[in-house]
Design a protein around this nucleic acid. Structure first.
Length: 865
RNA sequence: GCGGGCGUGGUGAAAUUGGUAAACACAAGGGACUUAAAAUCCCUCGGCUUCGGCCUUGCCGGUUCAAGUCCGGCCGCCCGCACCA
């Protein structure tokens, strides 16, 4: 077992007592209401938010990193004079609660509430500056009743609809998944291959905002480019045209979406998706086609399946008329590679210039007509093998567009389609509407009633909330809510006849799509949030969390905010003005012949490792994200108990920038622990006297003391900039430079003592947001009666930022030959004289004529010969 | 396949708009203190070297007085999307 550093106390306070100190200051901050938030303030507002956790049981290192980053920002901005909102809550609905219920025979509500209690205690031990009075848990009716109201408002505004549609079905979770929750054809949680099913589902019209959501990304300047790009790709705007084809012997039209209308004269077939209405109708009288449709629906959508699946089609026997070539018709297929989800679920095939179409044409012996020829090839001899030509070129074999560039041809075809009334320019999006129905118990009930006579009827306002029943039987087949004996049976609010409740619940991303707004209002009011409070606090100035929500949660929230605006809840489009995505916390993996091992089971010795109990060798594996399955986890609670929260916080901030992955190592945490104690000793057991006050007249300080004094001011300046840009690792490095210099300043005179006073106080104030308990303790240790957490951020004196001399690099022909010490902004003549006086420079010039001298003041002088 | 990003010591990383590469740490090695250990403190720490220097930011080339940084081409790794018409 590791040594219990934190509880080690010796007489006479020779060592920092972490436990006592951290508990003490947490209590003081709470008693004094240091983090209590108020909308009544003449300060500018700042809303910092970390993605709220799912109450899975215990906090993990990812939480520690996330919440440390947020806390540093919150404390820093508070010190800088902002009115800070920094809340915390629980994303409390979700499947693990149901699984735990089935496995351990404990009710999801109890399991969830107990986990919240545990995790709240763990977070409190980190000393985070939350206003806990605004804590929320999304599984409580006090929370979810508001979103039931929102849903009904959305319904009124036409933002919600119910539709029978093909959906992604997770066979393990026994529920529907949104498109965003299908990763590589598998359920995002279960990892099980997703199946297609046809179900009646509630949808939110996110596609109505597709263009707005896409265009507004450009304005999210404080978001990582990566995330904006991912959302842009997800929304997937494309520009093309709709074409309505006539069919032979039928009045029905075939509507197709294409981005290559320039290749219309290369069309040799058309195809529809297996679940296209035309296919469905034809299948009714055709058993063979019905079987083919069935086969397509069974096909998995996984990457692997798509790669290996053959392009298959079924000739319907119907023929489609070419819009511009009299008498020409092409066959209509049902094809397994056409998606009902995209465009119109129907395509025209131009094998010459699309590889899929080419594969299909070769398989079924269809014509291939090249209609785009590369510029450097004679169109008369241009031929295609089995490879489609998808490059740039000139249009050929194409009647009225011959000789045109692709872009011009597209325009000409679109004009003609529009003039003939058989098509028009169209913009298409990959984004699908958000299906929010889930066939699960532990979620927010969808507040509608299904009546045979009246159809779907919203639950009247005075009957909200629709509360989840607690007496349910979990573990059977299907949704426990629909199996409940009484819950779903209600009278129709409209006609009074017997009716049934909707037994589906909301996707849990529903709750996280507006929780940031809920935090804006105190819990005293019986509303989700007040318009005034939202107008005051929103948008979130800095949002911090994992990259895994780049599309899911962050896109839903952006949509939800727009929908709320439409319903008059608030007055902005974008919920998160600034976004920081943190990297993962990683650790080495260990395994022996029996499987993965916890780090606590392993004794690491140099390059080797053995099992602590058996002494048998252990294989050291790759460094990977901490995960329960690989067992490469370190329990934050043990770390905080052993080293204290400040040590863990410092480690999280020290070496790696926040957006990069961070490797947890014992050596690293030890290093942070050593530094914490070093700072404590620097103040409480200084090697040389610390004065009672900072220098009264800074301009009178001289010598080594002056250097340190100036360094302290430069450190303030640098750390302020670093923290403002979230360069926490650089901020830590800067403070370490300062404390190193303070330790080295050994002069025993009044100036030095006064400078030490100033220097240590500065270091403590700058470290305050990172190691709040230690710094509060040392602030008191330096004799202050006030609380550090209430102190304003230190400011550097401009006069102290200037240096007496600067070291300027000297180059000859661009090669470094030495340095000269010059006054800041020294004139070129001085620099030149200094440079030419250097022996190394003389040797390098070797008597040659100086052709040119390039001098960049304070940086470099380059002599060119 | 499409889109994007990243390659700097043994390791994590620093390096304003191109201007002294490796700050600050971790690990390692040596020393001091100690009966001993822990803790602490001091020193060394990119490579080669004939001790004058020379080389060094994945590789090759280019622009420039000057390139880790800009441009072009490779190599490697990572991420997102993907039968998207």
């Amino acid at each position: 077992m590791p040594e219990d550093h934190a509880s080690e106390t010796t007489s006479g306070d020779t060592r920092y007592n972490v436990k006592q100190s951290e508990t003490h200051w947490q209590q003081v901050w709470e008693e004094q209401g240091c983090f209590a938030v108020s909308e009544q303030s003449d300060k500018p507002k700042y809303y910092v938010l970390e993605m709220f956790p799912y109450p899975s049981g215990r906090i993990h290192m990812g939480h520690v990193r996330n919440y440390t980053l947020g806390d540093v920002v919150a404390r820093f901005m508070k010190a800088r004079g902002y009115n800070v909102l920094h809340p915390m809550g629980w994303d409390a609905f979700g499947l693990p609660a149901e699984n735990a219920a089935i496995e351990n025979n404990v009710h999801p509500a109890k399991w969830t509430r107990e986990n919240i209690a545990t995790m709240r205690g763990q977070l409190k031990s980190m000393g985070l500056s939350y206003d806990w009075s605004r804590e929320i848990a999304t599984c409580e009716p006090e929370y979810y009743k508001h979103e039931q109201k929102m849903f009904l408002d959305f319904l009124r505004e036409g933002l919600v609809y119910r539709k029978e549609s093909w959906v992604n079905w997770d066979p393990v979770e026994n529920t529907v998944l949104a498109n965003e929750q299908v990763i590589d054809g598998k359920g995002w949680r279960s990892g099980a291959p997703v199946e297609k099913r046809k179900l009646a589902q509630w949808f939110l019209k996110i596609t109505e905002y597709a263009e707005d959501l896409r265009a507004a990304l450009a304005g999210l300047e404080r978001w990582p480019d990566r995330v904006r790009l991912m959302q842009e790709n997800w929304i997937g705007r494309s520009e093309g045209a709709h074409i309505r084809f006539d069919m032979e012997g039928s009045d029905e039209k075939l509507e197709v979406y294409t981005t290559r209308h320039d290749t219309i004269f290369g069309m040799t077939f058309c195809a529809v998706a297996a679940n296209h209405p035309i296919a469905a109708r034809l299948a009714e009288g055709n058993a063979e086609l019905a079987a083919f449709v069935e086969e397509c629906n069974r096909m998995s959508t996984s990457e692997e399946a798509i790669e290996t699946a053959e392009k298959k089609g079924f000739d319907t026997g119907l023929r489609v008329r070419h819009p511009f070539v009299d008498g020409k018709t092409v066959p209509l297929y049902v094809a397994n590679f056409v998606l009902m989800d995209y465009g119109t679920g129907a395509i025209f095939g131009c094998p010459g210039h699309d590889q899929r179409d080419m594969d299909f044409a070769r398989k079924y012996g269809l014509d291939v007509i090249p209609v785009v020829a590369p510029r450097d090839v004679d169109p008369a001899t241009f031929e295609l093998g089995d490879e489609a030509y998808i490059g740039d070129g000139v249009i050929v074999n194409s009647d009225f567009i011959n000789g045109m560039e692709i872009a011009d041809a597209k325009a000409a075809v679109a004009d003609r389609l529009e003039a003939d009334g058989i098509g028009e320019r169209a913009i298409n999006y990959r984004l699908r509407d958000w299906g929010v129905s889930r066939q699960r118990y532990w979620g927010c009930p969808i507040p509608v009633i299904k009546c045979d006579a009246c159809g779907v009827v919203p639950v009247p306002d005075d009957q909200l909330p629709v509360v989840l029943p607690e007496d349910v039987e979990l573990g059977g087949a299907g949704n426990p809510l629909s199996r409940h004996p009484t819950w779903k049976h209600v009278d129709c609010p409209t006609c009074g006849k017997a009716a049934e409740r909707e037994t589906d619940t909301f996707d849990t991303f529903f709750e996280s799509s507006w929780y940031f707004a809920r935090f804006c209002s105190p819990h005293t009011e019986d509303i989700g949030f007040s318009r005034d409070a939202a107008d005051y606090w929103m948008p979130v100035d800095q949002y911090i969390g994992g990259i895994e929500h780049a599309v899911l949660h962050l896109l839903y929230s952006r949509f939800f905010t727009r929908a709320l605006r439409k319903c008059g809840y608030l007055d902005m489009d974008e919920p998160f003005a600034g976004l920081m995505t943190q990297g993962m916390v990683c650790h080495e993996t260990y395994r022996d012949d029996k499987g993965w091992l916890f780090p606590t089971d392993v004794d690491r010795q140099g390059d080797q490792a053995v099992h602590v109990k058996t002494g048998k060798p252990v294989t050291i594996g790759r460094i990977e994200k901490m995960s329960k399955s690989k067992r490469n986890v370190v329990d934050p609670e043990l770390i905080i108990r052993e080293y204290g929260a400040d040590t863990a916080r410092l480690f999280m901030l020290s070496d790696s920038p926040p957006d990069r992955d961070l490797e947890w190592t014992d050596a690293g945490i030890e290093g942070a622990w050593r530094y914490l104690n070093r700072v404590w000793r620097g103040v409480m057991q200084p090697r040389a006297a610390i004065g009672e006050a900072p220098p009264a007249d800074a301009s009178a300080v001289e010598g080594a003391a002056l250097d340190v004094l100036k360094l302290a001011h430069r450190t303030i300046d640098g750390v302020t900039g670093d923290l403002g840009r979230f360069h926490f690792n650089k901020a830590v490095a800067r403070v370490r430079e300062l404390t190193n210099a303070l330790e080295d300043l050994k002069d025993e005179n009044a100036d030095a003592a006064a400078v030490r006073r100033f220097g240590w106080e500065t270091a403590i104030r700058l470290l305050g947001p990172m190691m709040p308990h230690l710094c509060e303790e040392l602030w008191r240790g330096l004799g202050h009666e006030t609380l550090l957490v209430e102190q304003p951020w230190p400011e550097a004196e401009a006069a102290m930022l200037s240096l007496d001399t600067v070291e300027v690099g000297v180059q000859v022909n661009g090669k470094m030959r030495g340095t000269v010490s010059l006054a800041p902004d020294a004139p070129e003549d001085d620099a030149r004289a200094g440079a030419l006086a250097l022996e190394t420079v003389k040797a390098a010039i070797d008597g040659k004529d100086i052709r040119k001298v390039i001098y960049v003041p304070n940086r470099i002088i380059n002599v060119v010969v």
